[in-house]
Write a protein that binds this DNA or RNA. Structure first.
Length: 114
DNA sequence: CGATTGACGTACG
DNA sequence: TCGTACGCCAATC
């Protein structure tokens, strides 16, 4: 990376994603909104794309879209990895869609509410 | 430098 | 209620 280690939007996203508890998930929009870029949910997804080469391990598999669908499963080393990890954490996934989405949903602006 | 795409979300039909 | 269209911001072609 560049020596200009300013508060990158990407790093901000990684930080929040890492705070997601096991067995819980969140959405791109929720993270974007928490960072103040509510209308830049796409940037969150873009950041996730870089999360593979970043820091320890960013639980990108815990980040889904507003529908609770595993939109980014195809971007993992193996499309099956995302669902497998979610199921391993107790999250039921059927048809690339998370079950009990509302129950496992974790909102940073709510849990990390300032 | 300009056009297109993208791990999304909201609005409209 | 479901399907389609448009908007945002940044990176890549």
């Amino acid at each position: 990376m560049n020596p200009n280690q300013k508060p990158d939007f990407f790093e901000q996203v990684f930080q929040v994603v890492r705070l997601i508890p096991v067995g819980r998930i969140t959405t791109y929009g929720a993270i974007a909104r928490y960072l103040g870029s509510a209308q830049s949910a796409r940037m969150v997804g873009w950041a996730m794309n870089a999360s593979h080469q970043v820091h320890p391990q960013v639980p990108a598999h815990r980040v889904l879209n507003r529908s609770g669908c595993l939109t980014g499963k195809m971007h993992f080393d193996e499309p099956n990895a995302m669902q497998s990890r979610l199921e391993a954490e107790g999250i039921m996934v059927v048809g690339d869609q998370v079950q009990d989405f509302e129950r496992v949903y974790w909102d940073p602006s709510q849990e990390l509410a300032l």
